[in-house]
């Protein structure tokens, strides 16, 4: 597996979030595919030298969001079988992220047009990831 999780301390992002973000990123960029196996909680904890509860917390979040599943006695696998968020919940989570990005951009004097183009360009780069349909 070409996929490797690394964590740092002292960041403004908790370790469990660093783990979930990296698994998501690996999935949406194609480094991890449905059916791929993740290390067990114990293995990853000892590998990263972090409290196993932190890894368990990250895995619980990924499970809740439908990206991984635990198969009894076999381990943890990437899955993508259900839509976890309702549309409304999805929007509720997405909106602050968009607001934050636009807010940052405005303080750096980007124009609306530049933003639109940047957004389109980014979407193009992520084309190979299937949208939520």
């Amino acid at each position: 597996m070409s996929f490797n999780i690394t964590i740092s301390t002292g960041l403004n992002m908790p370790i469990y979030k660093q783990i979930t973000d990296q698994v998501w990123l690996a999935f949406v960029t194609g480094k991890l595919a449905v059916g791929d196996q993740l290390p067990t909680v114990r293995t990853l904890a000892e590998d990263l030298v972090v409290n196993p509860n932190t890894v368990a917390r990250a895995y619980a979040d990924l499970m809740r969001d439908g990206l991984i599943e635990s198969r009894a006695g076999r381990g943890v696998f990437i899955t993508r079988k259900r839509k976890v968020f309702t549309r409304e919940e999805g929007w509720r989570r997405l909106e602050p992220l968009i607001d934050a990005a636009i807010g940052e951009a405005m303080t750096m004097d980007f124009t609306h047009q530049e933003l639109r183009e940047a957004f389109e360009k980014k979407l193009g780069q992520w084309k190979h990831v299937k949208g939520g349909n």
Binding site: T9, G10, I15, V49
Partner: peptide, 10 residues
Amino acid sequence: QLADVERVAD
């Protein structure tokens, strides 16, 4: 060491 705390503490 806050880094240690972040790594291992509950």
